[in-house]
Design a protein around this nucleic acid. Structure first.
Lengths: 218, 218
DNA sequence: ATTATAATTAACAAATTGCCGAACTCGAGT
DNA sequence: ACTCGAGTTCGGCAATTTGTTAATTATAAT
């Protein structure tokens, strides 16, 4: 939504589209924003060609909030969350974090990975439940955030083969793969990791613990 | 990318994050933008609290273009082909249109789909451009418009697996999925379509042609 | 034809952006 | 100690945005 407005060559039109999707009149929307309706019109008609991102954010937030107050019908129909989703958590950092720091913080043990990659920065992570991923076919859906300079955690790992094979098949590769409490580690897994130049790590912390640690990252 | 910058509490930090991901110095980026380095710094440091969307767009486009000139390594490694989506076009009809009519008009070939579904009406369509995802931010956000009684077009399709897997994982399903100039069609894709009772179609027309045809729908 | 509601437009003041240039900090080399 | 590159800070200034009011045009419904 926000991105669409920014990139659009006619941001006003996009703004209008979303206003109508949310079934708001200019007047309605204006009152939500505490401005006069003419302001809304000015933006939609492109008289203000390049609104500030603060303005865009206000618009977006106002509409979403309004929808939420109405029961969130529109938003939820668009961003419907799957409760048996395989993705446990997904987040982006603003600052790059060295791979080595992350490994240290989550008390990880390196199974495979070149020394020289360890200082490269990553910008986010994804925690995936392997079993659910396979059963829901959601492996490649929401695995990646905005950057692939990231870490991917897999929980529910038996031998670590399937996750690495999935990654190998996938065109986009993460920098780091971390197995959460794996039973054992198959040789093929480490071999594949080496081939893909991915740092492979295991940790004995559980998902919750990991998330609380990573929350502190920025 | 653009969306992330807009939504972020500290747009400057996000801007900086992306600059470093694209391996540009402030000076480099500044020269791409034809401004002085101090300008870049001012934005990154948040001296301008709410930069205009024109500025954001310039930044994003400059970085993507720069990367493209370098061979497109970063962009393509980030969002490879068909697992991410951006909306090329999205529209609603005012009147229901039979699936069969739409397929005929766009010169589509049915790959999978029961006879009895073909006369059901749809009320809109979405064309998803895999490449545009880089600049927008919409993974699965605004895929759906008013109603899910609609058609979804995918361009930039290789095997057609990922789009169908994504749809399978998504709780809201379209009635028709149309691949625009797919390279080949994976068996899994048609199988999934059958399971979801979705009409799967391919067409050799390009996005523009499709849009002009669909513009006539009401 | 009339009334109401929604949308558009012009005119204007205050605030902010977008950009510059020059001075300044901070490390990494040499 | 000196230099170089990268990044930061900031006063200044024109251009733009953000917001207001008030008048005008569609659009729809009775």
């Amino acid at each position: 939504m926000a991105g669409e407005i920014v990139i659009s060559e006619k941001p006003g039109d996009t703004l209008k589209k979303w206003r109508t999707i949310f079934k708001l009149s200019q007047k309605n929307l204006a009152s939500l924003l505490n401005v006069k309706p003419s302001v809304v019109c000015d933006f939609e008609k492109g008289r203000r060609a390049s609104p500030g991102i603060g303005t865009v954010r206000k618009f977006v937030e106002a509409m979403v909030e309004y929808d939420k107050a109405q029961g969130g019908k529109i938003v939820s129909s668009m961003f419907a969350k799957d409760n048996n989703n395989a993705v446990y958590d997904i987040r982006e950092f603003n600052t790059g974090t060295a791979i080595s720091k992350l490994i240290k913080d989550i008390d990880g043990e390196i199974l495979s990975g070149n020394e020289d990659i360890l200082e490269r920065p990553i910008y986010g992570y994804t925690i995936v439940d392997s079993l659910k991923a396979i059963t829901t076919f959601n492996v490649f859906g929401d695995l990646y955030g905005w950057s692939n300079e990231r870490a991917i955690f897999f929980s529910g790992v038996h031998y670590g083969r399937s996750p690495m094979i999935a990654i190998r098949a996938h065109p986009v590769k993460p920098r780091v793969v971390i197995y959460i409490k794996p039973k054992t580690i198959d040789k093929l897994a480490t071999k594949l990791a080496e081939m893909e130049r991915i740092v492979l790590v295991k940790t004995e912390l559980n998902e919750e613990e990991i998330v609380t640690i990573l929350k502190k990252f920025n």
